[in-house]
């Protein structure tokens, strides 16, 4: 199946802003994250089609996944 991955802020460094990817049916958000070399404890907001999900969320054909790093400074 085909999903669109959008990366924000530091996640774009040495990666990309937006990319369409081919992945097996039922791929979980966490697998995409791991495949991108993003450590799970860097994860802030995770959206699939603008809805908040967890790393265990299974993706479907045509989904758009958006990943934001944790930002907590003041």
């Amino acid at each position: 199946m085909r999903v669109t991955v959008k990366l924000f802020a530091t996640f774009r460094n040495n990666r990309f802003e937006i990319e369409d990817r081919e992945c097996p049916e039922g791929t979980m958000v966490g697998e995409i994250v791991d495949g991108l070399g993003i450590s799970r404890h860097e994860l802030g907001i995770i959206l699939v089609n603008s809805r908040h999900v967890s790393v265990e969320h299974a993706l479907s054909e045509g989904d758009t996944l958006a990943l934001f790093p944790l930002v907590g400074g003041g």
Partner: peptide
């Protein structure tokens, strides 16, 4: 809570980037 739903411990990207 929703913004930091996946937070487990420590700081965010500011730790490495500063401000």
């Amino acid at each position: 809570r929703r913004i930091y739903n996946h937070w487990k411990e420590g700081k965010g990207a500011e730790q490495r980037l500063g401000n």
